[in-house]
């Protein structure tokens, strides 16, 4: 109960990080707007408006960076001077760390929903099954938060953990061929089919919209299993750092 009472304040802290709002909400909105103008009328090979795909990709790409806040707060509260105060408090510190992670995931999903709503109602992008899209966004936010926390717990220098989280996000964006085309060899095909969270999430959403439910579930389950496995890794690493 005491830990739950802190979640409201953790949320306040997150919402008041204006730089994060700029990077994870304003910038995507501006980019979505510009892309929507540029791609107006353009269709894919299957006749679908390209704007649908682009909007999905944009929202998912920014979810890759959604773990930044949780990792920053875990670092400040448990690995800087504030840890003295936190450890002197009469509550379960591990649960408190979890609560920060949960708030980070919820916040990231909420921003994703705002972007989804914006793209659908302002630019007419079709997200298909909304519940399914939100579930996929949730899985991506969960995975990104877990990965960022693994970096936080496994390196002593927080700046390096931050750089690693950026490499995770930007790296998969590049591997997905979103900046420049990647070679079409087996390695890249394998990575983009079974490993890259962005392509997995995007294919899960497209799959469900194109009535390939089996494939959609397969892709989402890869994300879910990866989250589960990495969650255990995070627990093991976190236990060593947070009592």
């Amino acid at each position: 109960m005491r830990v739950i009472s802190t979640m409201k304040f953790t949320f306040f802290r997150m919402v008041r990080e204006y730089i994060t709002l700029l990077l994870l909400l304003v910038v995507p909105i501006v980019l979505l707007t510009v892309f929507s103008f540029v791609l107006e009328g353009v269709t894919t090979e299957t006749g679908e408006p390209l704007i649908n795909e682009q909007n999905v990709i944009f929202v998912l790409v920014f979810q890759m960076f959604g773990g930044a806040l949780a990792m920053a707060y875990i670092h400040t509260d448990f690995f800087t001077e504030r840890k003295q105060r936190i450890y002197a408090l009469p509550f379960n510190q591990t649960l408190y760390a979890f609560s920060i992670m949960v708030c980070g995931i919820v916040y990231s999903v909420l921003l994703g929903i705002v972007l989804m709503t914006f793209s659908e109602f302002v630019f007419g992008a079709d997200w298909g099954n909304w519940l399914w899209a939100i579930y996929i966004i949730f899985l991506l936010a969960l995975l990104s938060n877990i990965v960022c926390l693994i970096f936080t717990f496994s390196v002593n220098n927080f700046k390096i953990a931050e750089r690693l989280s950026e490499v995770y996000g930007v790296g998969f964006v590049i591997l997905a061929g979103l900046i420049f085309p990647v070679p079409g060899n087996d390695f890249f095909v394998f990575v983009n089919t079974y490993v890259n969270p962005i392509t997995l999430a995007a294919d899960a959403i497209y799959g469900m919209n194109q009535s390939h439910a089996g494939e959609a579930w397969f892709r989402s389950n890869i994300l879910l299993i990866a989250s589960g496995v990495l969650f255990i890794v995070m627990l093991i690493l976190g236990k060593r750092k947070i009592r």
Binding site: F9, F12, R13, R16, E17, E81, R82, Q84, R85, A88
Partner: peptide, 12 residues
Amino acid sequence: LVTQEITIFEEL
């Protein structure tokens, strides 16, 4: 506990 460093939440 009153810590030596200022350990308040600046965002609250």
